[in-house]
């Protein structure tokens, strides 16, 4: 099984292409790959419960592992308790783990 680490650094409200990146995550998952969507920088903003980003919710429901960089969350005053269901706060170490494990890692 192929493993993908997709790093999403942009807020979909400022960059419409971000939702295409979310769809890539879903398509890879549907195709049988192990996929993690790692939200970082302004990419963590739609992870807030209440941001109501339908495309990101679909990523969560597809079975893609969705995580948010805890440092980026702290920078933006987003608490762990404010994250939408299915999204966890994690360390950036997760990306280095994926690189070391050989996951195909893509930055957006």
């Amino acid at each position: 099984m192929s493993s993908f680490m997709l790093i999403s650094s942009r807020d979909p409200f400022e960059c419409g292409d971000t939702e295409n990146f979310y769809r890539l995550a879903v398509d890879l998952k549907t195709g049988g790959s192990d996929v993690t969507l790692f939200l970082v920088q302004n990419g963590v903003l739609p992870a807030r419960d209440g941001a109501e980003n339908l495309a990101l919710r679909q990523v969560v429901h597809s079975g893609v592992r969705v995580v948010a960089d805890e440092f980026s969350l702290r920078e933006r005053a987003v608490g762990r308790s404010e994250l939408a269901d299915g999204i966890a706060a994690v360390s950036l170490e997760r990306v280095v783990d994926a690189l070391a494990a050989g996951a195909k890692t893509i930055w957006h």
Binding site: S9, V40, F71, V95, V96
Partner: peptide, 16 residues
């Protein structure tokens, strides 16, 4: 912020 995240990644990997 990309350059900051870049340095954070390097710091983690260098620490390992």
């Amino acid at each position: 912020a990309r350059s900051t995240t870049f340095f954070r990644l390097l710091e983690i990997a260098a620490g390992r």
